[in-house]
Design a protein around this nucleic acid. Structure first.
Lengths: 267, 267
DNA sequence: GATTTTAGTTTCAAATATTGGAACCATGTT
DNA sequence: AACATGGTTCCAATATTTGAAACTAAAATC
């Protein structure tokens, strides 16, 4: 949970404050009541009330009359379709993921960085599925996932700094790196190696190998991972190293051929 | 109070106007330049400029420095995940779609109404069974799709009226119904029959059978369709009628068991 | 069933952010 | 060099937002 904005970004006036409320609602992950929102929004009652009305009118939120709860609205799904198609690597990477999925039969994830967090933008399920965490649109921590570390490792210093300050370093498992220093050491290893491991750092029993997707200019576009839920995962995954690096390379190439825009910051 | 606001819509102040710009950007379906947006947004140059900056700051838009274009931002994907999980029928319906997919081997669509349009919230492909965001989030016309007509048929008169006024009745194929009168007649048939046909009304060669998903109170929650691209489609699809109705029923049941909220308006 | 509490809604004058015409700057074109 | 075109900045006028407080409805408690 990402509370108490110390002074991170400018509030962008009414619009920014209103959109912040939208985030608060989405964070709950379930329909919320006015009174639950009030303490986390840091707004006067009347103001929050007005914002919620506006968002509801706009279809950004849906309001349930019966239980008096708010939840994110369908308009977001419509808008996100456009975002996914245009701002994500997913459409470009799809054929390569299909290919890799066929070759490995494993679970694959394609992710990008958003606000210092890992945003999963596509996924391929293993032929023998492993029950786990992610889906498209879902977010996860950057410091303890393969894709997250792969991306952090190649961020320019200022963006990395920025991203690190947003992490809260929760210890998910006994392998989780819980401070910036050990994470930085790990990132150094990743750069030497060219790819990242997640050795049960986020979920027990779940390991993965992840490669960054870098633009020709070396900018971080995203990352790709192959996951294993098996005990001998690491050894098995190791054999995929050349394959995943090659695939990441191909995606990067395709992205720049498709003239995928360089982003100002991938933080 | 709640009296079917016949008035167009309130602009919801700055926030509403800013979000309208977001829609305009999304509608382009490709990165857009400032100058392209200016004519379609009906705003003074300086104002549009400010709105775009705000949205970009907020991550609702992404700006490509190189080509000076705006496109929907990844924040939307994050928000939409929450919307999809909470405001759509998809999570509840998923197991039933899986089952139906297995039983029929056909392409399935799950849709809901948003702003008088069909919003697809889930899909099963005939070939590649589990796919997500790629189609989810897409919108289509209500008056010439199976799912659209199935939902319109069970809307209360005021909501139907509202939805109809938003249609532009473009003739997609020679079978497309192009006016409200013939559509209303068709809706009457659908109510008698209990399900809807799309007989190449939207795309040539594409037929489908669709059933509405109705809450116990008879409110329209969504619709479900089975599609065929084969010449003898209709006959084949007809055999699925009992199955699709049964599945729609099960989804409706599951939705109300899960205490899926009644919506104020399903328009 | 009366009373208090909690949750949600409305009001309105004051405070402030928004507005947008116009000037400006940067690039590319004739 | 003059002229477009596309994008950015300024700033005074003004419409919009703001939020304390009053209010109402519905529960919870007495």
């Amino acid at each position: 949970m990402n509370d108490a904005t110390p002074k991170p970004e400018k509030s962008d006036g009414t619009v920014g404050r209103t959109l912040a409320v939208l985030d608060r609602v989405a964070e709950f992950g379930r329909p919320v009541r006015f009174a639950e929102l009030l303490p986390v929004c840091d707004l006067p009652k009347a103001t929050l009330y007005r914002f919620l009305q506006t968002l509801t009118n706009q279809g950004m939120l849906a309001f349930d009359e019966d239980r008096q709860t708010y939840r994110p609205g369908l308009r977001l799904v419509r808008l996100a379709h456009a975002a996914w198609a245009q701002s994500s690597l997913a459409p470009i990477a799809a054929p390569y993921l299909d290919q890799l999925s066929k070759e490995t039969g494993q679970t694959l994830h394609l992710a990008q960085l958003d606000q210092g967090m890992v945003l999963y933008v596509d996924k391929r399920n293993a032929s023998r599925p492993v029950e786990m965490f992610s889906q498209s649109g879902k977010v996860g921590p950057a410091y303890c996932t393969g894709v997250g570390k792969a991306m952090l490792a190649y961020l320019p210093e200022d963006a990395l700094q920025n991203a690190l300050t947003r992490q809260s370093f929760h210890r998910f498992t006994e392998h989780t790196l819980t401070d910036a220093t050990s994470l930085r050491a790990e990132l150094e290893n990743i750069r030497k190696r060219g790819f990242a491991w997640d050795d049960e750092e986020h979920e027990p029993g779940i390991r993965c190998i992840a490669a960054p997707i870098l633009s020709p200019q070396g900018r971080v576009l995203g990352a790709l991972s192959i996951t294993s839920g098996q005990p001998d995962g690491q050894k098995q995954l190791e054999t995929y190293a050349p394959l995943i690096l090659e695939t990441a390379e191909k995606i990067a190439k395709a992205a720049s051929d498709w003239r995928f825009p360089e982003q100002k910051r991938a933080d």
